[in-house]
Amino acid sequence: MNPQRAQEIAASPIMENVTYEGTPIYIQHVDENNGTARIYPLNQPEHEQTVPVRNLIEH
Rank of each mutant, 00 (worst) to 15 (best):
M1T: 12
N2S: 09
N2P: 00
P3W: 07
Q4K: 13
Q4Y: 14
Q4N: 12
R5I: 13
I9G: 02
I9E: 04
A10R: 02
A11K: 06
S12Q: 01
S12N: 13
I14D: 07
I14T: 04
I14K: 07
M15Y: 04
E16I: 01
Y20Q: 00
E21S: 12
I25D: 01
I25V: 15
D31A: 04
D31N: 10
D31F: 01
D31E: 09
D31H: 03
E32Q: 13
N33M: 11
G35P: 03
G35C: 11
A37T: 03
A37Q: 02
A37F: 09
I39E: 01
I39Q: 02
Y40V: 04
P41N: 10
P41R: 02
L42C: 09
L42E: 13
L42A: 02
P45D: 14
P45W: 12
E46Q: 12
H47R: 11
H47A: 13
H47V: 07
E48M: 09
E48N: 00
Q49L: 13
T50Y: 08
V51Q: 10
V51C: 04
V51F: 09
P52N: 05
P52K: 02
V53S: 00
R54Y: 10
R54G: 00
R54V: 13
R54I: 12
I57Q: 10
H59Q: 15
H59W: 08
H59M: 11
